[in-house]
């Protein structure tokens, strides 16, 4: 073991702030709270917020769940009975319905001050990526992105360089602000007790941006980020018609979500929102089946924590085979339909 590893491990164990936190937990717990910012849509909690609650619980402080928007009261009653939630704060104001950071970040800022919050946790989703850095700037804090491990109240693990390096960092800010990688934390389960619901303070900051429209892919399949199985197509699919013709039945046969490589997305075979990789979604399903994907490092960044990786590619030297638990070298246009048929007949 290198010097730096030994040193840093010792550093974590004997960190005075960690020990102090444990010793004085009871007396200061009122001032040492975690705020979990949760996402909801159409009156339902978004599933990745369950992972946020688990990550928040790992900080060993009372967790206040935060919801904003006109539907937030209804969602709050469901959140109140989730494991690890000690209080729910609600800003039931339609001004926050579109999650505009220009008014939502000041709302968070006010509540963090009022509640004596020391830790803020939300998802490293489009919501968290948009909201958190702006909030952090308002609080003069350097946030920690895409946290995949919590090793103490101020020590966090995150990937850098497309997941090729794993960094363990210690935050010296008075408030720690994290966006978490959903796949690294289990979802929170329901609880028998019910937490109280309170109204948040609302500064009613005017948003300087306006929401115009959204265009979301209508999708009957499991959500890509949380699916148990993912089938992903790449440039090898050749065009959009064959992408749909090959990948859709395969996904149906496996009950899987569909993903895509950047090459497939750029070429227009698949929607942008299906991109798996460093700049797209990060997935860690039980099974990741890569079809016609070579395995560039940017793609591997988004899927290499999958439990089992399988690959179909005609190029025996494709880098994907270096990470695949099982690889089939062959023409995807013949072997994939064969695989689909055999999967169906096994049902």
């Amino acid at each position: 073991m290198s010097y730096i590893c030994t040193f840093s491990r010792a550093g974590i164990r004997s960190s005075p702030s960690l020990l102090a936190g444990r010793r004085t937990f009871a007396s200061t717990s009122r001032l040492r709270n975690t705020l979990a910012i949760l996402e909801h849509k159409d009156g339902e909690l978004i599933s990745r917020s369950l992972n946020v609650l688990t990550a928040a619980s790992k900080l060993n402080k009372p967790v206040t769940a935060f919801l904003a928007g006109s539907a937030s009261k209804g969602v709050a009653s469901k959140v109140a009975s989730l494991s690890g939630v000690s209080k729910v704060l609600v800003a039931a104001n339609a001004a926050y319905d579109k999650n505009l950071p220009e008014n939502y970040a000041p709302l968070l800022q006010e509540n963090i001050k009022k509640e004596g919050i020391t830790h803020v946790v939300t998802s490293h989703s489009a919501f968290g990526k948009n909201m958190v850095p702006r909030l952090a700037a308002l609080l003069d804090v350097q946030p920690v992105s895409d946290v995949m491990g919590i090793e103490g109240e101020d020590v966090f693990v995150r990937p850098i360089y497309a997941g090729n390096i794993i960094a363990t960092v210690k935050s010296t800010d008075p408030i720690k602000i994290l966006t978490i990688r959903g796949t690294a934390f289990a979802p929170a389960a329901p609880n028998s007790s019910t937490a109280p619901i309170e109204e948040a303070v609302d500064p009613n900051t005017e948003a300087s941006a306006e929401w115009v429209a959204e265009n979301l892919a209508v999708n009957e399949r499991p959500d890509l980020s949380s699916a148990e199985r993912v089938v992903s197509g790449g440039r090898g699919l050749k065009d959009q018609a064959s992408f749909d013709k090959i990948m859709t039945p395969l996904a149906d046969a496996l009950g899987a979500a569909i993903g895509a490589s950047r090459a497939a997305v750029d070429a227009g075979y698949a929607d942008n929102s299906l991109q798996v990789g460093q700049t797209g979604k990060v997935v860690a399903p039980q099974l990741y089946l890569a079809v016609g994907i070579s395995g560039a490092i940017q793609h591997l960044a988004g899927m290499k924590d999958s439990k089992v990786i399988a690959a179909i590619n005609k190029d025996a030297d494709a880098p994907i085979f270096q990470v695949a638990d099982v690889g089939l070298v062959g023409d995807l246009f013949t072997v994939t339909p064969e695989l689909t048929e055999k999967l169906k007949s096994q049902k």
Partner: peptide
Amino acid sequence: RLETLKLAEPKPRQGGGK
């Protein structure tokens, strides 16, 4: 504000063969 305690390369995944 963030002190780097440790940098590591992730455990490489071993391909399971073809």
